[in-house]
């Protein structure tokens, strides 16, 4: 099985609407590569092209340019969808079906034999915390229960790639943690997960990597750690008196916290950090700890979007 499970090359989508043939460039030359076992968050403001991107992968929308491959098959082909599970945003299950019937119908549509459906339905409902609700009508379910049933549905065919659009939408904090744990479990099983969510705190906790889209282009891609620390400096917990010339030689400032002085190096450059450490050690200042200065993913996201930057 290939290690690169999702790849897109120069993927573009232009919607043409109305009598005046108004053109909206939803995606413009998007190149993405996702490795097996990764959990990747797709972020972006409304209208950034996230849903279009996911729908092209699923074959719900056709691209106007470029290509997308899933597990080595062209995206959108029934073959590529065999290894795919999808939870759409605001999914609508027929309200007259029971939870069991819902999974059975979508299992059939996924071409699962009855033996596999019989085996997987109770297991998935149990994992979704819906044991005891098997024969209840979906119409009686709360939003959170619907979301968990949606996730169970996405896992019916034991997919290699799972695409989740707002998976924790409407789910209470306990339910959100359960979904996060479940996604962690799936990652350990080697599943690849793409998540589109506005809950950036969730993305920060779940994802290995994030891709930020804006105006149909990738504006930033990297690990969560890179995004929350990029451009930020270091915090050094010290013991002793900070030499006076430090602020002259380095771009830094001093703060005081409960455990003593903290020297904040404002640049993220490792060479600067090493030079500062050497200087402090030569001045007999003890360094108790070093950590990266961090911001929340949300703060980083807003900064990137507001700066209007585009990745080269």
């Amino acid at each position: 099985m290939p290690d690169q499970v999702i790849s897109t090359e120069n993927l573009s989508k232009t919607y043409v609407s109305g009598l005046r043939r108004k053109r909206v460039h939803a995606l413009q030359g998007v190149d993405i590569s996702v490795e097996r076992g990764e959990i990747v968050g797709i972020l972006g403001p409304n209208g950034a092209g996230k849903t279009t991107f996911l729908k092209i992968l699923l074959g719900i929308v056709s691209p106007t340019g470029g290509s997308a491959m899933l597990m080595g098959c062209p995206a959108g082909s029934p073959e590529s969808r065999k290894s795919l599970g999808y939870l759409p945003e605001n999914h609508r299950f027929p309200t007259y079906l029971t939870a069991r019937q819902t999974l059975d119908v979508y299992g059939r549509l996924s071409d699962l034999p009855s033996t596999q459906r019989e085996e997987r339905i109770p297991m998935l409902l149990k994992q979704a915390g819906l044991a005891g609700w098997e024969d209840s009508r979906v119409g009686t379910f709360s939003k959170g229960m619907m979301q968990r049933l949606g996730l169970a549905q996405a896992l019916m065919n034991d997919p290699e790639i799972i695409v989740l659009d707002e998976p924790t939408d409407g789910v209470d904090p306990v339910g959100r943690r359960e979904i996060r744990d479940r996604l962690g479990e799936l990652r350990r099983q080697g599943k690849t997960i793409l998540i589109n969510s506005h809950l950036l705190s969730e993305i920060e906790l779940i994802c290995d990597r994030v891709i930020i889209l804006n105006h149909g282009r990738i504006v930033r891609a990297g690990t969560v750690d890179e995004l929350v620390t990029q451009g930020l400096g270091w915090r050094l917990q010290l013991k002793g008196v900070v030499p006076d010339d430090v602020s002259e030689r380095f771009t830094c400032h001093t703060e005081e916290d409960a455990s003593g002085p903290v020297l904040v190096l404002d640049t993220g450059d490792v060479i600067d950090l090493n030079a500062l450490i050497d200087h402090l050690r030569s001045s007999n200042v003890s360094i108790l700890g070093i950590e990266r200065n961090r911001r929340s993913l949300e703060a980083g996201f807003i900064e990137i979007i507001e700066s209007g930057e585009v990745q080269a």
């Binding site: 699923l58 969808r81 027929p94």
Partner: peptide, 22 residues
């Protein structure tokens, strides 16, 4: 109307079945 409803049709189209057969 229900068949073509957003949230329903995209779920159906994501299954490994051709649109024609669906």
């Amino acid at each position: 109307a229900g068949f073509l409803e957003q949230g329903r049709i995209d779920l159906l189209l994501s299954k490994p079945v051709s649109r024609l057969r669906l």
